[in-house]
Design a protein around this nucleic acid. Structure first.
Lengths: 208, 208
DNA sequence: TCGCGGCCTGAGCGAGCGCTTAGCCTGCCC
DNA sequence: GGGCAGGCTAAGCGCTCGCTCAGGCCGCGA
């Protein structure tokens, strides 16, 4: 759907779909602020200031502060589903598809740690309706990973006792990266992706 | 040091060390509120209300709201270090000690999910001084796990390419449990602990 | 018996919050 | 050229926040 996808570097601009320009600048500012301080500790004045606007400008493009979080969360989760779906529908063996899924998903959490933090850890700040919508997207995330694992079990590639429990563990290895990854640390997103993909293949008992 | 340690059930009272009684009630109320809503979304009126006191009572026992979070975080991290240290200094092989460490640590995150959520995800709400103190405790957590893995590599029990990267992955499998575990879900803390311990042994290439 | 110190409350202060309103620019169509 | 619609700002409203303070209750030592 969108343009550049696997350009190297850190965070590519995945917010191209947000228009007009001022609305996108506000949303990007909100992502940064939410990731740094958390949703409740971020003020609308801070968001507007980062975007170079007055506090009132925010309310021309968004009805409330919560709508900003909702939009960020939905776009982020849709991107997460897309990454996993692309890997799951690939052509290789279950082993290859699982490794691809984990390394892509880990790269997304490490490289776009700012976005990933908001997406993964600020869910509870949404109201009931918005939260329900996001939870549905999370179930799709879970289903994509579980699907690959089930394929591998069916084909005999994997040796797994508890499919759903292992699915949760695989997702933990991806998502928790957003908690500890440090952009100035010794590891690149690619390296963490490769390592965690290898660890996941060991977990499911795939022969390397 | 303390009394009952491995009584079954959910959350044992690990706050016995907090005195006097009113201070402990306030702290327990704060843990619940912080876990439910997050630090910044929790008001001092809410904490005091849960403890059956007026808002002003809080400030007799704690100087600020942040001091409450600091105390919770320090006690929680000390407990985490204690759990892992106990497992690491056990008598078995590295394989047995790693499985013990992971299953205990996962049980703590699942059973005491309320506390674990605050401990693992509210670190950034602390001021610089308090945060530095807590980060030092986290390094001890990391070191205990890494120590066991290094032992296993040295003894030839484990086959690990990247010791520090694997340490981070093991901790992810433990800590992320606090994010997704549901007390009303189908799994008990014991079951998740056993499963994740098994998955970790696969990750480090231990023969079962 | 009485004073005194420790725990607690009711009332409320100053500040900063999310959000609104009135009005000003600017570019565009007729 | 004139009216108008959309994007923006300065000012500020009403509210709730973290926290304070003066005073009341209660148990205990003299």
């Amino acid at each position: 759907m969108s343009t550049a996808e696997e350009t190297a570097g850190g965070e590519m601009p995945p917010w191209a779909e947000v228009t007009p320009d001022a609305a996108r600048r506000l949303l990007v500012a909100a992502v940064e602020a939410f990731a740094e301080r958390g949703y409740h500790a971020t003020t609308t004045r801070d968001i507007a200031g980062r975007a170079g606007m007055s506090p009132a400008a925010l309310y021309i493009h968004y009805k409330t502060k919560e709508e900003l979080l909702h939009r960020i969360s939905r776009i982020g989760h849709e991107k997460a589903v897309e990454i996993l779906r692309t890997a799951a529908q690939g052509e290789g063996s279950a082993t290859e598809r699982l490794a691809d899924a984990v390394s892509s998903f880990v790269r997304w959490h490490a490289g776009g740690r700012t976005t990933a933090r908001v997406v993964q850890y600020e869910l509870d700040s949404l109201g009931p309706a918005a939260r329900a919508e996001i939870i549905a997207l999370r179930r799709q995330v879970d289903a994509e990973v579980r699907g690959i694992i089930e394929d591998g079990v069916a084909s005999g590639e994997f040796d797994v006792l508890d499919v759903q429990g292992t699915t949760l563990a695989v997702l933990s290895l991806c998502i928790d990266v957003a908690r500890w990854f440090n952009v100035n640390g010794p590891r690149t997103p690619d390296e963490v992706g490769a390592l965690n993909a290898d660890l996941v293949l060991r977990m499911v008992g795939a022969r390397k």
